[in-house]
């Protein structure tokens, strides 16, 4: 089985802070990490490889600094890393990104060997769109299952993907090749291993492809290929926390007190009434 897993090199948003004086975001000196929601995807890919053999190829569209992120996942047991990198990819929205990644997957299929599954995380912590998996599937014309928690091969070479929604566990059987997106925290990732990391350092199995390698039209990539326009961003105002300590007589009293507090706030009360009783 040849499995591609898409990862994104994102700023560690925990470390991004508001400057108390200027009110802007401080991004300087914030190190990047592999998008945390990509780890279930990586883990699923590695499990499929454990079960059926083959190889796992991590793909990312990013500047060269993302090599560090590729090395991290190579340390987990991923076999190859592919860095789709070009100045002309910069400023891409999800459409232009998924286009480059889809073309990257096509090139892998052609030059390295046919890809059976492409797996993505649910979304990224720096933009939270959850578009990429679906868009790659549509560029490639492959079936797509998201919110996946597990997957295995069944008869006729189909992939059975377990998907969990709020109310049910669903199982889908799809023909390969297919695209899968995992749910947040669906699988616990394995740690980085000395032997894998050492192999990565020595064999350096990271390939970089630029726009010419992929044969893409620059009008379809980066800022130019991005129809999305960010009209405005409004930061959520920080709501100061009230420090209230209430010692309830019993659980019933506690529940009553909490409800009373919630309903005493007009906007919360409105929201609750709508959610609980459908009242407007």
């Amino acid at each position: 089985m040849r499995i591609v897993v898409g990862i994104k090199w994102v700023p560690n948003t925990q470390a991004v802070r508001f400057d108390p004086k200027t009110g802007t975001l401080i991004r300087a000196g914030v190190p990047s990490i592999v998008n945390p929601h990509d780890f279930p995807a990586i883990e699923l890919a590695l499990r499929l490889k454990d079960m059926y053999g083959g190889e796992v190829i991590a793909v990312t569209m990013a500047p060269p600094s993302a090599t560090q992120g590729l090395e991290h996942v190579l340390g987990m047991g991923v076999d190859k890393g592919i860095l789709l990198t070009d100045r002309k990819f910069a400023g891409a929205d999800t459409l232009a990104t998924s286009y480059v990644i889809a073309k990257g997957i096509e090139k892998i299929s052609k030059e390295i060997g046919p890809v059976d599954v492409a797996i993505f995380g649910h979304e990224t912590i720096d933009s939270s769109t959850a578009h990429i998996g679906a868009q790659v599937a549509s560029w490639l014309g492959w079936p797509y299952v998201y919110y996946a928690r597990d997957a295995k091969l069944v008869e006729d070479g189909k992939l059975r993907v377990t998907r969990q929604t709020e109310k049910a566990v669903e199982e889908y059987e799809v023909n390969l090749p297919a695209v899968v997106a995992t749910a947040i925290k669906a699988l616990k990732p394995r740690p980085v291993r000395l032997s894998y990391k050492l192999r990565a350092k020595i064999e350096k199995p990271i390939i970089a492809w630029n726009i010419e390698d992929l044969g893409l039209d620059p009008r379809c990539t980066g800022l130019k290929g991005s129809p999305t326009v960010v009209a405005n961003i409004t930061w959520m105002p920080e709501v100061p926390r009230k420090k209230i300590v209430y010692t309830p007589k019993d659980p019933r009293d506690a529940a009553r007190w909490i409800l009373k507090q919630l309903f005493s706030d007009e906007s919360v009360a409105g929201f609750l009434k709508k959610a609980l009783w459908g009242e407007e």
Binding site: N12, Q14, A15, R17, V30, P31, K188
Partner: peptide
């Protein structure tokens, strides 16, 4: 602690 960077393990 918000000023210090962490990549918290699961």
């Amino acid at each position: 602690l918000q000023r210090t960077v962490y990549d918290v393990d699961e």
